[in-house]
Computed example of a mutant assay.
Amino acid sequence: MSEVTPARRFRRATMADLPAILKIYGHARELMARNGNPTQWGSTFPREEMVREDIEQRRTMLLVDTVDGEERVLAQFALCPGADPTYANIDGAWLDDDPYVTIHRIASSGLARGAARDCINWAIEHYGNVRADTHPNNKAMQHVLESNGFARCGLIQLLDRPTDTTRIAYQRHEW
């Protein structure tokens, strides 16, 4: 279960959140590089245009809390409903072909432990059938997904870049 309290809650991002979101993505890129995963997001992913589109399409969810009357963003992710074209071909097998949502671009600000776990659990609680993928070098995200009951389903290839395309695909379906 998520540790969501009145002071710790989820909300959709607005354009006013863009600077904080971009800062957190920068922090996440640095953290991934320091932990042996410099290529998953490189130095520019996700690009600002993608982040803006996620906000405009109401895909960006924020985990926030309030300290001394000030709201802080603890973590963020894009929640994408509908079939993800990247997931059409898998070297392996999905748990099922039922409708699902995909978690993309999850990142923690580093201000609170367990923030990524809380984001994943929120998605499961609200949508039931959730897919995600991560880079083979992203051991931290693999651990978060697997320790939260996701099954490793196989390998997929990203469609939006020419190199470093292999990702480990995960799914969790609450029946």
Results as ranks from 00 to 15, higher is better:
N121R: 15
H143F: 09
S147T: 15
V64G: 01
G36D: 11
I106C: 09
G154H: 11
G149C: 07
A169V: 05
I90A: 01
R172M: 00
M141K: 08
P162E: 00
V67Q: 15
E49Q: 14
L145S: 11
E30I: 00
A169F: 10
E49M: 06
R59Y: 01
A28P: 10
G69D: 11
R29E: 03
S109V: 04
L145P: 05
I120V: 15
D65G: 06
H104E: 09
N89I: 03
A7P: 00
A28L: 05
T163I: 10
N35D: 15
L22C: 07
A107T: 00
P136M: 12
P38L: 08
G114C: 02
T86C: 13
L74C: 09
T60E: 13
P136A: 05
L74V: 08
E49Y: 00
R72F: 03
R52D: 04
I124C: 13
R58Q: 05
P85A: 04
C119E: 12
L158D: 05
A28H: 02
M50G: 06
G92D: 05
Y25L: 10
Q76R: 12
R59C: 04
F10D: 06
S2P: 06
N138F: 03
A33Y: 06
W175S: 13
Y87D: 12
H104R: 08
T39S: 10
E56N: 08
E70W: 00
V51Y: 01
R52I: 15
R8C: 14
V101K: 07
E3R: 11
D84F: 00
Y100A: 13
P38N: 11
A169M: 08
I106S: 08
R9V: 09
Q171N: 06
T163C: 07
D84V: 13
R34L: 03
A123C: 15
V64W: 02
D17A: 02
R47P: 12
R161D: 09
T5L: 13
E53L: 07
A7W: 07
A132P: 01
V101G: 07
Y170G: 10
G82F: 01
P19Q: 12
A140Q: 11
A112T: 06
D65W: 01
D160F: 02
N89A: 11
A7C: 01
D133P: 12
A83S: 05
L155G: 00
S108P: 04
D54P: 07
A13C: 10
F45P: 04
P136L: 11
V130P: 01
V101Y: 08
N35S: 13
D96Q: 01
K139R: 15
I55T: 09
N37L: 10
F150I: 09
E3D: 14
R131V: 05
Y100S: 13
L79E: 12
D84I: 12
E53G: 02
A16K: 10
L111A: 12
G114H: 10
A13R: 09
G69T: 07
D65H: 04
Q171W: 04
A13G: 02
G149Q: 11
S109L: 04
D96S: 15
G26F: 01
Q171Y: 07
C80F: 05
